[in-house]
Amino acid sequence: MGNKRILPPVLVLALFLLIWQAAVALFQVDAYLLPSPIAIAKQIYDEHEQLLRHLLATLGMTLLGFGAGALLGFVLAGLLHLIPGAKAGFYPLLVLTQNVPLMALGPLLVLWFGFGTLPRVILITLVTFFPVAVAMLTGLMQSDEKLVNYLRMIGASKRKLFWRLELPSSVPHLFSGLKIAASYSVITAIYAESIGSSKGLGYYILLAQRGFETANVFAAIALIVLLSLVMFGAIALAEHLYNRGKVKGETS
């Protein structure tokens, strides 16, 4: 992952911020409508203690929900793949679960599980398991037919086939599923914190909006974007390390 891939988007972003800053100054936009990037940065600095506290709350919940969702998606995909007929029966229903609007589900979960962390983690889990399960299932079914044939001919059991062929060949799919799930999990966490919660960046945005503290809203947005990037980056890094593990074997 060289600088070559990171540099162009950073340059574009810098240009964007520059134009934003210039436009706000030039047209003298009111701060409660659109604060300038510098004003937002200053706000982050001034509010950093509060922001950090809420950021950590969001981070904790996101990681919990993401972890649970990824695990659920992984196990579910494995089960649907291995149990004959399970996929035909359950897969369409799985798709249906994604049509339940979060707006309706969130308050219901709070109603059932109280105002604590649990309903929010469940919400994130329900949102994140899906892309992981779908990606895994696709990967599990797409293992190279000639490898399947070969291993079966020499007597590999269904279990062996799963662990030694289907699972390893679905790893690239798993990673792309995890990347999608990571950004979903952050967005869902923010939403979950806006219903009956008293901490997290979602809650912070809600408060800031009520008080027309637009700079604070933007400060929180900046942190949320950063959080998403870090989650995404961590998975990309894991993928990179996994692939490099192979390369290392080549040279040793």
Binding site: K146, Y150, R152, M153, I154, A156, V171, G249
Partner: peptide, 19 residues
């Protein structure tokens, strides 16, 4: 019944993720 023969398929069929 599977698993009674030693087999060399038409294409090499090596698992790319194994040494």
């Amino acid at each position: 019944e599977q698993g009674h023969i030693a087999y060399m398929p038409q294409q090499a069929s090596l698992m790319p993720w194994l040494t």
